[in-house]
């Protein structure tokens, strides 16, 4: 459907339809964020022998995040006197917009995709890099020393980890012979790439966590060191935008992992009756669960170790993986 719309002659109705669908999708994503946060809190609670939210919206705390968001909306919007005002206002937008933009190329099922562009994978990686600018801007514009340090850490970290992230994906691209996400999924009809590219998957997953700024790579907002890092001065809905960007990226990254390594909407051979969307959702949930699990278990890396790890460990492994994949592809 989307494909037809994209290729048809432009008109205001089509723009309207597109806009409407985008808004609908935004709400789907917001719904995901709402319950991702809740599930994260519930799972963390379960792992740490706590109860977690259980007051708002029944005994499962289903409306806890909604209440939190309402609270954020009501909060006073503070802008520090000495802050760089235009940049301070722009930063959350810069951080959030790319997070939503990358979702456009992700195919969630065989049919459901906004834009099926030839270089979908490249598009994702290129656009997601923009968020770094938003984070650095926030760190700088706040005119706070902790923010600045958080912003600088974020810049260094996200740029460094972009490299092994991309390199680890080259193997997948080599095997699939395409940068188009649908074709990559189609190439996994028989066997998922996680089995053909185990090394690539590990490097990708580590780099992905670093890109998401999650534990153990949460240095930009390291609470115990930098208080809150780059968003220390933000409050209310501006702050919520950073959180939103973070969780939307988590959504996107989990979806991307599913697409690239876990066979997208393909089910297991003997479970073919499961619809593609459900199959996708299940795998996606497993990835999210692992992300939360890692968050609960690990302490944080140190900045210099983080850099060393990216350049001296992950990158060589990723390069070796490319070489090996190319060799194997050539031979077999």
């Amino acid at each position: 459907m989307m494909q037809e719309l994209l290729q048809s002659a432009p008109s205001w109705t089509k723009v309207g339809i597109f806009f409407g669908l985008a808004v609908l999708f935004l709400f789907v994503v917001l719904g995901f964020v709402t319950f991702a946060i809740l599930s994260e809190r519930k799972i963390m609670g379960f792992m740490q022998m706590r109860i977690g939210p259980n007051q708002v919206g029944g005994s499962w705390g289903l409306l806890q995040t909604v209440a939190d968001v309402l609270k954020l909306l009501l909060k006073e919007d503070t802008i520090p006197k000495k802050a760089d005002r235009p940049l301070y206002i722009l930063a959350p937008v810069l951080a959030f917009a790319p997070a939503f933009m990358v979702l456009a190329t992700l195919p969630f099922t065989n049919q459901f995709q906004f834009a099926d562009i030839g270089v979908g994978l490249l598009y994702y990686i290129a656009i997601s890099g923009i968020t770094t600018i938003g984070v650095v801007t926030a760190g700088w514009a706040s005119n706070n020393k902790y923010s600045l340090m958080g912003g600088m850490r974020a810049a260094a970290q996200m740029i460094s980890y972009e490299v092994p992230l991309v390199m680890s994906l080259v193997g997948v691209v080599l095997l699939a012979g395409s940068l188009n996400l649908r074709e990559i999924v189609a190439a996994q009809e028989d066997i998922w790439f996680i089995f053909l590219q185990p090394v690539g998957f590990i490097v990708f997953f580590i780099a992905a966590i670093a890109e998401l700024n999650r534990v153990p790579f949460d240095l930009p907002e390291a609470e115990s060191e930098l208080v809150a890092g780059f968003h220390v001065e933000y409050s209310g809905f501006r702050w919520a935008f950073f959180m939103l960007a973070e969780y939307v990226y988590m959504f996107a990254m989990a979806a991307l992992t599913t697409l690239l390594f876990l066979g997208g909407w393909h089910s297991l051979p003997f479970l073919d009756f499961i619809p593609g969307a459900v199959s996708f959702a299940l795998k996606f949930s497993v990835v999210i669960y692992v992300l939360i699990w890692i968050r609960v278990s690990f302490p944080r890396l140190r900045a210099d170790q983080l850099m060393e790890f990216a350049w001296k460990v992950l990158l060589p492994i990723a390069l070796a993986n490319i070489f090996l994949t190319a060799l194997l592809k050539e031979l077999f």
């Binding site: 609960v296 278990s297 302490p299 944080r300």
Partner: peptide, 16 residues
Amino acid sequence: YLLDLGATSPFLYAFR
């Protein structure tokens, strides 16, 4: 100490 180093769970285990 582990909370300082960024790990949240040990704190709760220790407090139990």
